[in-house]
Design a protein around this nucleic acid. Structure first.
Length: 273
DNA sequence: CCAGTATCCTGCAGGC
DNA sequence: TGCCTGCAGGATACTG
């Protein structure tokens, strides 16, 4: 569910509301998630320590301590991080709770359990396979120069390529569809059959749509909320995602839905080539 | 190495 | 009202 803008919005909320505070307790159940959730291990490493930094890499969050290591979190499809009063009712599927010194709690809620929360010892970050495999950070400088040659070398549909976290880290199904619409490129177009100039345009649109979505607090479709419980407001700016059957804002043609790599894909047959 | 498919899990909407 | 099917913002282990 959450893509880069939603994860970045969560990170900013934690930077303001969590960083600097001490985690006085850790509780939860050691359920199976994308990786096993080991509550006692997290409790031993994080309990009694302060969170010093909240970082993001692609769709991953890293909550650092000064010298004990970091809590790695991925929200998967349905994950949410909530920051609020410990007395508030606890949602179903709350798997991990960080109790804070000021009486509030950070709760990791994830019904589908496609997410993960895992302790990384100092130095583990550079060994974790899913972190080391991550590609370009799209809001960092250089996307326009680095991404086009990678895409041009491949035959797969561009939408599948930009969803591949090893190429560019943070684009998901919503922003893949939106950036291709903005660039006027068909999602099914093979990377190798797209000019480098058009791929550069795509890279620019990826950056632009992600940055705009961050400024709107992300996109809420059904259940994404910020740690404070607010909805992201970028949904009103979506041009294709979830709009099949409606008319294209740019050319008026009827937007069509298809499936690409087992993911719903909406595009405009009139102006995406 | 690359491209495409199946799979993990719960909740919800829609059809009958 | 229920029961069934398919689908959902993701990643990855497979298969050819």
């Amino acid at each position: 569910m959450p893509e880069l803008p939603e994860v970045e919005t969560v990170r900013r909320a934690l930077e303001i509301g969590l960083v600097g505070l001490t985690v006085v307790g850790v509780r939860g159940r050691s359920v199976m998630m994308r990786r096993p959730l080991d509550i006692p291990h997290i409790a031993a490493k994080l309990g009694g320590r302060a969170v010093s930094t909240a970082r993001r890499r692609g769709k991953f969050l890293l909550l650092d301590t000064a010298d004990s290591g970091s809590l790695l979190i991925h929200l998967g499809m349905s994950g949410r991080l909530l920051l609020g009063d410990a007395a508030a009712p606890e949602p179903d599927h709350t798997h991990l709770v960080l109790c804070l010194e000021d009486g509030r709690e950070v709760r990791f809620v994830d019904p589908r359990r496609f997410g993960l929360a895992q302790w990384l010892a100092p130095g583990d970050e550079s060994r974790d396979p899913s972190l080391t495999a991550l590609g370009i950070e799209p809001l960092d400088p250089g996307l326009e120069e680095l991404l086009p040659p990678l895409l041009h070398a491949r035959r797969a549909p561009l939408k599948s390529l930009i969803l591949d976290q090893r190429l560019v880290a943070g684009v998901g199904n919503i922003y893949a569809a939106e950036s291709l619409w903005r660039a006027g490129i068909r999602p099914s177009r093979p990377g190798c059959r797209t000019s480098v100039a058009r791929l550069r345009r795509l890279a620019r649109e990826i950056r632009a749509v992600l940055a705009e979505a961050v400024s709107q607090g992300g996109t809420t479709i059904r259940d994404y909320v910020t740690p404070a419980g607010d909805f992201g407001s970028f949904a009103v700016s979506l041009q294709v995602y979830g709009r099949d059957g409606e008319s294209c804002e740019r050319c008026g043609a009827v937007l069509r839905a298809t499936r690409l790599g087992n993911r719903a894909t909406v595009w405009c047959p009139g102006c995406q080539r």
